[in-house]
């Protein structure tokens, strides 16, 4: 536990020692406001809620989370510092968790800094604050799933650009797996059980009710399990490839 915390602190401050975190947060805030006001028509809807804001989160995360996660392992392997890290008395699992929590913390901070939107709707009307908090939590959980996938892709390569693109592709598949883009590939040969299973991987479906403030156990569980599986996969990949 102690080691995880030390690594989390190091990684978190490293995001802020470089412009990565600042750029990420600035772009995240800009894009999320643009989507909310211009495409989501927050004002025109005439409702005091943040649904237009949360609805765009899967699409925002699709590009921004791989960007913040691409360096986690790729850079470590490229610069050779992984050799230092892995010969300190730290287990691979602790390193994986430490790095994950640090980046997840940056995402939490970015989300928290969207609070002016909340103030705006509170000023304009009387939103249901419970719903908004639940939607924030749901969005953060989904961000964690994006992050676990992206970090796993970063563990697979020494090249950050490759990691970024791979992460976008895999995340995209998970975002749209409930729609025709993915399901059509299964339509003709797989039986319904398979198609339903694939469709149930969809981030969009699981986030849909979360964005409305409903934290159902199966949605929360889904994102937590996704995180667990992908983080475990990165652990295995790093064990295998750390010295390549």
């Amino acid at each position: 536990m102690r080691n995880i915390w030390i690594i989390t602190k190091r990684e978190f401050s490293s995001f802020f020692a470089t412009p990565v975190a600042y750029v990420f947060i600035a772009i995240f805030l800009m894009l999320s406001s643009i989507f909310t006001f211009f495409i989501g028509n927050l004002f025109e809807r005439g409702q005091a809620d943040l649904l237009p804001f949360f609805n765009f989160h899967p699409w925002l995360y699709l590009f921004l989370v791989p960007a913040i996660a691409m360096r986690t392992w790729a850079e470590e392997r490229k610069s050779g510092s992984i050799e230092l890290l892995m010969t300190l008395p730290v287990s691979v699992g602790e390193a994986v968790m430490g790095k994950f929590f640090a980046a997840w913390g940056v995402l939490a901070l970015a989300l928290a800094l969207t609070f002016p939107l909340w103030l705006t709707v509170s000023y304009l009307g009387a939103p249901d604050n419970g719903i908004i908090i639940a939607a924030y939590v749901g969005s953060w959980l989904m961000a964690g799933a994006f992050l676990a996938i992206s970090m796993c892709m970063s563990a697979m390569t020494k090249n950050q650009v490759v990691a970024f693109i791979l992460a976008i592709v895999v995340c995209f598949l998970f975002v749209v797996s409930g729609s025709g883009i993915v399901l059509d590939a299964f339509q003709h040969w797989a039986d319904n059980a398979v198609i339903d299973t694939v469709a149930s991987f969809s981030f969009l479906t699981h986030f849909e009710s979360m964005a409305k403030g409903v934290l159902a156990l199966n949605d929360v569980g889904y994102f937590l399990i996704t995180m667990g599986v992908w983080l475990y996969a990165s652990l295995v990949i790093i064990e295998q490839k750390k010295a390549d």
Binding site: R10, A17, S79, S81, L84, L88, P89, V90
Partner: peptide, 26 residues
Amino acid sequence: YLPEGAPAYGDMTVYQFLLFIAQIRE
């Protein structure tokens, strides 16, 4: 252990880096 090429976390200052190692080294 000093690995070949003395890799370190380049974005940290020398003091931050040594502090990090000292903490991990208990």
